[in-house]
Design a protein around this nucleic acid. Sequence first.
DNA 1: ATAGGGTTAG
Length: 708
Amino acid sequence: MNFNNKKSVLNLQRSLLLRIHHHRQYHFLTTPKQQKPIQPWTCISLIKQSTSLNTLKPIHASMIRTHLHLNLFFITNLITQYSSFGSVSHACLLFSTFQSHDLFLYNVMIQCFTANAVYDNPIFLYRQMREFDIKPDNYTYPFLLKACGHLRDIGLGKVIHKDVIVFGYESDVFVGNSLVTMYGKFELAEFSRQMFDEMLERSIVSWSGMIGAYAQNGLYKQGLLLFGRMLDERILPSKVAILNVIPCVRRENEADEIKKVVVDNGLDIDQSVQNAMIGMYSRCGRVDIARRIFDRIIDKDMVLWSSMIEAYAQAEMYIEALELFKQMKLQRIQFDFVTILSVVRACSVLASFRQARFLHGYVIRSLYECELMLDTALIDLYVKSGSLEYARKIFDNMSDRNVVSWSTMISGYGMHGRGIEALNLFDRMKGFVHPDHITFVSVLSACSHSGLMDEGWRCFSSMTREFGLTPRSEHYACMVDLLGRAGRLKEAMELIKKMPMKPDSGVWGSLLGACRIHSNVKFAELAAKSLFELDAENPGRYVLLSNIYMSLGEREEADLIRGLMKHRKLRKTAGHTVIEVKNKIYTFVVGDRSNPQTELIYEELEKLMDRIRKAGYVPDTNFTLHDVEEEIKDKMLYLHSEKLAIVFGLLNSGPTGVIRIMKNLRVCGDCHTATKFISKVTNREIVVRDAHRFHHFKEGVCSCGDYW
DNA sequence: ATAGGGTTAG
């Protein structure tokens, strides 16, 4: 970092040379002998007209014979062209053999590295320039700042920013725009904004860069606001401005407004804009509109198809996603690993083991690029379709694992209530890759799902102490969950109060969930108060609070909350349980009578409930909603979709098979207890996947212990 | 010669 230190600069130079050396390819000029000597005046146009490495190399060779390669002007043109063909090695070789400390040459070389995503070399070159006292100019900084941004090296970025000021380029529009983008990549949107505000001159790129910085940092409101201001100032939105503002759109009315701007400016014919609009509407919960846009596009490319599949996957419409993928194949449209990633994710939503096997085989046969990402997605798929063993097999066979793959496997163990194994894997991981924020979410939630209180705290404090990571709201949410499930609500509340940042909806949601288990109104009200502001649109929060009131017999309060919900036009997400029997998927809702075997199911259910009652099951009427007589309450519990699905599974599977069911919400507490008894009296293994995790029931116990 | 960009694993 210190440019005045001769020794460090020398070291840098040496390592730069080594790097460049690494790129060398010695035989690239062994082309057939050129027929005619090349003329200087045709040389540049020949270089510029070349369309590939193979047409460029002979030109280069003949330039060497006529000694044109000793001319700086020709060299820089060659480098630029090599760079545009992605051949960093040829560009490097030219640069390193041509001993000149010309500013233009350095700029071109820096540009070559940045354009080809080799982001640390521009920094070395810049340091070398400074050492040789070459004064950088306004063309140097945009590439350099871009490289800094990609490296996420904040310290370096700030040093170079200082240089920008020293050399007086801070008022250059290009340099200014690059600074805005760079700070956006550093997750320092407020710095970006400062740059933006201080700019003397702004172009459309400044506006879209700033909006993009907001979008990348989740500051959607600000992004939309700035976009609005841009329109107010009568600046015509560019395609990129639209693409940057679209991630900020989270509501349907906003989406409609953006769509109007798109149409008014004639940008709706652009395929990338159309594509982004598909994602936009699907994020707003309007997959139907997204689909309409998709259908209207005549000449659809691979990316559009992938986006639409991904849109379905995000909307949890996995059947539609898979159907679209099928159509894509039928229409013989090329697909790539991104498409497959969406398909795998679509399957993870309702993962059946059978589908997972099929997709896995498919991926193996297809030999895609990005094996790492695909393997990781498959691990997640197997985890979610209930097979930790297969997930682990993929994990063990991977030739390369990054922080995401480790975290996925750890969270897999956590989801299945195997906290100790999750922690063991975490320990092993430390020897290979550096854990990040999400790793800790996996580890901490693994602790909370298995009730590993001490280990949880130890990990939580090691985050900062050992790994220099500052806990975020998500981590506090895990800790509140851990304390809350264990009934230590007071401590959970104290932890929330001690948080250095404003608790988000996740934190309050954990507390509210714990209050439901342990029937605590006082803290529930506190949590709900914040949630109704932070996450006002989420119906689940209202239902939880109302259920807490109900379970304590406070009917009026409960009605009040239901009323509030109605007033805000929110509808409860209907709970349902899904079971796959003989390759067919069956869905049950509470009190369901749509199944052809309904009579048989209810008959069997009565018998089964009697059997488990004799074995000690006591219905927990805490989980009924209505203020009715005890006996009726018990019967209402029988109607829960979980129980119906389990009975259906018992009726329709062999005498020993594992029963696998899936609930879209959190599994009900009474059903959890009942399932324990069912697994005991029927001597069957039952696996329940709910919105958060898996419960493995065997011989009357659940893998989660009492940490429901 | 310069800045912003569509789908992408936890």
